[in-house]
Simulated scan of single mutants.
Amino acid sequence: MTALINRTATLALAAALLTGAAALPAYADTADAAFRATTLNLSASGESKVTPDLATITLGVQTDGATAAGALSANAAQMTKVVAALKKAGIADRDIQTSNLSVNPQYVYEQNQPPKLNGYQASNQVTIQVRDLAKLGQTVDATVNAGATNVGGISFGLQNPQAAEDAARVDAVKALQAKADLYARATGYKIVRLVSLGEGGGYTPSPPPMPMYAMAKMERADSSPVSAGELKVRVDVSATYELVK
């Protein structure tokens, strides 16, 4: 009885091995076919141009005082006026954000003498977003007239970049397909299918921030001229195509 069981187990094992061996050539053929496929790897970029509808500006107030508390108190009073001017100009609370607040001792340095404390300087900066660019120059002027001692920079962007990105994507895919067709014709191949498609990059505000400075109260009726220009939205794509003769 034991011999019969052993013989049955041996036959089952042999059958399993034969089945596995029969499956190996089919798998090998599939792998070889994939390995032998001729592929073309390419990348391209697309671009769309659009007028910005958003500006980001950094405004600052610097005040001096004999004590740290005095410098901060003067700074708070001046910044309160600046924020009030911003709100009067139509800037919403959500578009005003404190980006830096600091107070630092100020020293006088003389040759061969230890540094001498000369008071304190407080600095407060807010980053604001202006959604109505027609009022941008007036907004900047209003803050300076209210006590802002510097305007650190301005950059332009889009409140909703989706449409501009999609236009750049379509342009990128068209450029990619044209390039693939060109390579295929030049090498005597035909495109069978698109194997993979990937995206890199995306919306980036352009041009980069431009420096602006305001160190004195401006007394004039005309607002500061500010030109928003044009933004370029770029999307990069890459793809793999399968080719045949």
Rank of each mutant, 00 (worst) to 15 (best):
N41A: 13
L42N: 08
S45Q: 10
S45R: 02
S45N: 09
G46V: 03
E47Q: 14
S48A: 15
K49F: 13
P52R: 03
A55R: 01
T58D: 13
T58Q: 14
T58W: 12
V61C: 01
Q62F: 07
D64M: 14
D64P: 06
T67K: 12
A69C: 04
S73M: 12
S73Q: 12
A74T: 10
N75W: 01
A77V: 15
Q78H: 10
M79H: 06
M79P: 02
T80I: 04
K81D: 14
K81M: 07
A84W: 09
A84C: 08
A84N: 12
K87H: 02
K88S: 14
A89Y: 03
D93F: 06
I96A: 00
T98H: 07
S99Y: 12
V103S: 08
V103C: 08
V103Y: 11
V103F: 10
P105S: 15
P105L: 06
P105E: 12
V108F: 07
V108C: 03
Y109D: 09
Q111W: 09
N112S: 13
N112M: 08
N112R: 13
Q113N: 06
P114S: 12
P114I: 07
N118A: 14
G119T: 05
Y120D: 01
Y120F: 15
Q121E: 02
S123H: 10
N124E: 14
N124Q: 12
V126T: 08
V126H: 03
T127H: 05
T127D: 04
Q129N: 13
R131N: 11
D132E: 07
A134H: 09
K135V: 09
L136H: 07
G137I: 05
T143K: 11
T143S: 14
V144I: 13
V144L: 15
V144H: 08
A146C: 08
G147P: 04
G147I: 02
A148I: 00
V151M: 02
V151S: 04
G153T: 09
I154T: 07
G157S: 14
G157A: 11
G157R: 06
